[in-house]
Design a protein around this nucleic acid. Structure first.
Length: 424
RNA sequence: AGAGGAGUGGCAGAGUGGUCGAAUGCGGCGGUCUUGAAAACCGUUGUACCGCAAGGUACCGGGGGUUCGAAUCCCUCCUCCUCUGCCA
């Protein structure tokens, strides 16, 4: 949620930044927000005055009753009754303005950073860097869905039977590879200063609101209707919400957490013929890193996280590239996002395997997360990134390291898999 | 799941209708003393909102109600503890 004070003082700057997202009506919308906030302030003032008088009268009645001056009390009670009526109507009005204001505010996406390029779709994203490995001419690269069958690694049909499309069963060395990757990613994160947590994978509404999935992405999350809980689309939600409604001492920054969790996404409307095998699933595994920083430290934190993610991808000996997302492709809550994509030679496609974002104060404002610096308090900056999402990494590993009758496992994983090759 | 008990400031813990935003202790911060530290003593110490300020308002698990007035009474939901039951 955009900070109201900032909005009031830097309205034009914010409006022009939001226009990069293609929000043409934003000027009007922001003016309306400020207008509502003015109304809110006036009503709050009015209400406070009414309540002040009531409080004075109530105390007065108390004193008078104690002193036995019972007869003079009736008039005060009458006045108090009037004030109560008035306060009821004013506070109702105030409440409805506050709700309107909040609804408007939480439907405005985060302000893109200056470095975020203009653009409408992923074709306008900027390739910041890339490292492409040589592709052998002697190998006819197969897509991973064929390899998975050939080498007996994942059973999609049985997943269909148990649950439905997009819920694969990992088997044999496929299952072992999953576990190896999870452990490898967790260990690496640990040794890079991320403290490991194992959060719930069901979240309540307040948590969903805190990180910005609700109300914006309501339709993308699986919901347990009976309990009013949602299955997490990413560990970002439970991890970041651990710090909801907290004031963190500046000295303890940065907070760095890592968690492995399964993630659940409905992916409504995003299925098509190009989505095969592991490219898009309803349930997938991901190791997620989160940092809480202050305003001045978050750019550095983002850079550090990107470097860390890059080191992971690099260690798997696959081609990758780093993209700076354009405003049109930027998530609702993010200020700036770098995506990492890995190359899958069997399908000649780049697959997104990590998204590293700085949310600045946007989530912190929603969840009331602050940093204390001496006597001052200010909203924290939150950041997160995938490190990494498994399925597309598996796809890229299988497709890149296939070699006829075998698939080579990247060296970094040997001690985790216990095997160096997958054979027919 | 059933029965009983409980939720108060960073923590501990008073307060059961009237100047209570809340005693007291611990912790934190500032100071005196000291070469320095400890101890002792003095002061200070919640959050949000309105206001240029003075000041005001709200908050004692959440929501609602009774009352001129609620931390205190009533309803409801949530959480925790104990016992019983069930169970990975």
């Amino acid at each position: 949620m955009i900070e109201l004070n900032k909005l009031r003082s830097e309205k034009n700057k914010i409006a022009s930044a939001l226009k990069k997202r293609g929000l043409k009506e934003i000027d009007n919308e922001l003016s309306k927000v400020i207008e509502l906030d003015d109304q809110r302030k006036n009503l709050k003032s009015e209400l406070d005055k009414i309540l002040e008088e009531s409080n004075i009268i109530a105390k007065d009645i108390g004193v008078k009753i104690k002193n036995g001056e019972k007869d003079s009390v009736d008039e005060l009670k009458k006045r108090s009754g009037e004030l109560k009526e008035k306060s009821k109507s004013v506070s109702e009005e105030l409440k409805s303005i506050e709700i309107k204001l909040r609804n408007m505010l939480c439907n405005i996406p985060n302000i893109p950073d200056e470095i975020v390029p203009e653009g409408n779709s992923d074709t306008d994203n900027i390739i910041v860097s890339s490292k492409e490995l040589k592709i052998s001419n002697e190998i006819k690269y197969k897509p991973h869905w064929d390899l998975i069958k050939d080498f007996n690694l994942i059973d999609f049909d049985t997943g269909n039977k148990i649950t439905g499309a997009g819920f694969p069963v990992y088997i044999e060395k496929g299952a072992k590879l999953q576990r190896a990757l999870i452990n490898y990613f967790l260990d690496e994160a640990n040794s890079n200063g991320y403290s490991e947590v194992q959060p719930p994978i069901l979240i309540n509404e307040e948590s969903g609101f805190g990180t910005g999935q609700l109300p914006d992405k309501e339709g993308q999350m699986y919901k347990i209707e009976d309990e009013n809980l949602y299955m997490i689309p990413t560990a970002e939600v439970p991890i970041t919400n651990m710090y909801r409604k907290k004031i963190i001492d500046k000295g303890t920054l940065p907070i760095k957490n890592v968690a492995y969790t399964p993630c659940f996404r409905k992916e409504a409307g995003s299925w098509g013929s190009h989505v095969r095998g592991l490219n898009r699933l309803h349930q997938f595994d991901k190791v997620e890193i989160v940092q809480i920083e202050n305003e001045s430290g978050s750019d550095k934190a983002l850079e550090e996280m990107c470097n860390y993610v890059e080191s992971l991808v690099k260690s798997l000996e696959i081609s990758y590239r780093k993209l700076l997302l354009c405003a049109g492709d930027l998530g609702f809550t993010a200020s700036v996002t770098y995506d990492f994509e890995v190359y899958a030679p069997g399908q000649d496609r780049w697959l997104e395997c990590s998204s590293v974002s700085n949310f600045r104060t946007y989530q912190a404002n929603r969840m009331n997360l602050k940093v204390r610096d001496g006597k001052n308090k200010f909203l924290a900056n939150t950041l997160n990134g995938s490190a990494l999402a498994l399925p597309r990494i598996v796809a890229a590993i299988l497709e890149t390291h296939q070699n006829g009758n075998e698939i080579n496992i990247p060296k970094a994983l040997h001690k985790y898999t216990g095997f160096k090759k997958i054979n027919l």
